[in-house]
Design a protein around this nucleic acid. Structure first.
Lengths: 209, 209
DNA sequence: TCGTTATCTTAACGCTGTTAAGTATTGGAG
DNA sequence: CTCCAATACTTAACAGCGTTAAGATAACGA
């Protein structure tokens, strides 16, 4: 009765082939460059075949992103070992920025592009979706920092603080993704911008000892 | 010899009609919803006619954005009257956030979408482009704050500080534009997020008295 | 009056994501 | 062994997109 297993294995194989073909195009040229026909050409199938494995184009690319996002989740596991919550916060921000810089197209699709949410998707999403996990990770750190009395007393809402922290780092990354080529801004080094943002945010949040 | 003038007036008129038709679609449904054919239908011309007035679709929408951006520039003129540079910084951030919240599609096109830069455009851009003006306005405030010794001594690069300030506000706005509908984040009020971001940034930047 | 120029239209090109319909192939049930 | 149904695919097509080439029309300047 290993037939079903073999079938399943074959399904996964071709699914991976689709993702690999899409990854190449997506990483080097962005969302628009990935066309169903190009993917199909890459894997030597007809464009229609892809629809048997993925609902539509966006689903293909989101699957890609989630896969690559696992790398970030992996780094978070290391960061989780840092004892001091404020230092953990800093390390998290740095790792997040690194991810954004090295996967600009992923970042754009995941965090800079709105997309409609349906109820069914919502259910799907709630099991181990790495985006959500990352936010939960951040919120956990903030909650701990507040509980330890490390933040200014008026910053008592973990959700609000986490959202501010996220927004700060997101601002640096997304400006980089969208505007790095802009000639009318003398952009400073991305690493410098990341560092200053983290310094300013943390300085602005922590309680003076 | 008023003929040339009349011709020019007619050109501007139809140009405005195109922009008006595009504005309606763009503001309510976003970039994708604006199609050359829909604009054409709205103004009762053929789609091709638009290309006589604008190079391509993106040019139409950027013209739209620049026009609406003038409103922000107007507010900046009021804000410029605030004497204290730090308070001026705060007011600028608030005005910028307000603009982003009330023109999400404009904001997306202007600041969240990369687009290729050509040398010729660069020349065009450099005369009174409102994006650049806004950044210059911000940089001016920061420069003044630094000169007045209001910021921490290590924050001595106006460009870097301005970019951090911008990134912080941009983070709040762009997350709002892209992720406000996300069900897996308990988003706090936009105004609250804006206020906290401004408080944290300014607290993290200003020198303790 | 003639020719040029500005302005617009019709038709088409090449591309896109997606789907309807048809075709093998394969595995299980009677 | 045969037949049925499901699986996995293909070909062809649809409807839409931005854009352009080519032709028409009208108005102006010489």
């Amino acid at each position: 009765m290993g037939i079903k297993e073999r079938r399943e294995r074959e399904r996964v194989e071709i699914r991976e082939k689709i993702l690999d073909a899409a990854r190449e195009l997506f990483a080097t040229q962005g969302y628009e460059a990935v066309t169903m026909r190009k993917i199909a050409e890459g894997i030597e199938y007809s464009p229609t075949a892809i629809y048997f494995h993925f609902k539509d184009k966006e689903t293909v690319l989101r699957a890609l992103c989630e896969a690559d996002f696992l790398a970030l989740a992996g780094e978070f596991r290391e960061i989780a070992k840092i004892a001091d919550p404020v230092e953990r916060l800093r390390a998290t921000g740095l790792a997040y920025a690194d991810f954004g810089l090295s996967h600009p197209n992923h970042y754009r699709l995941m965090f800079m592009t709105p997309h409609p949410y349906s109820k069914e998707e919502e259910m799907e999403l709630h099991k181990g979706n790495p985006e959500e996990d990352a936010y939960a990770f951040l919120k956990g750190i903030v909650t701990e920092a507040i509980a330890d009395g490390r933040l200014r007393p008026e910053l008592d809402d973990p959700e609000l603080v986490a959202q501010t922290m996220w927004a700060g780092m997101h601002g640096v990354i997304s400006l980089q993704c969208a505007k790095a080529e802009d000639p009318w801004v003398e952009w400073r080094d991305f690493a410098a911008r990341t560092r200053v943002m983290l310094d300013v945010l943390i300085r602005g949040m922590v309680r003076e000892s």
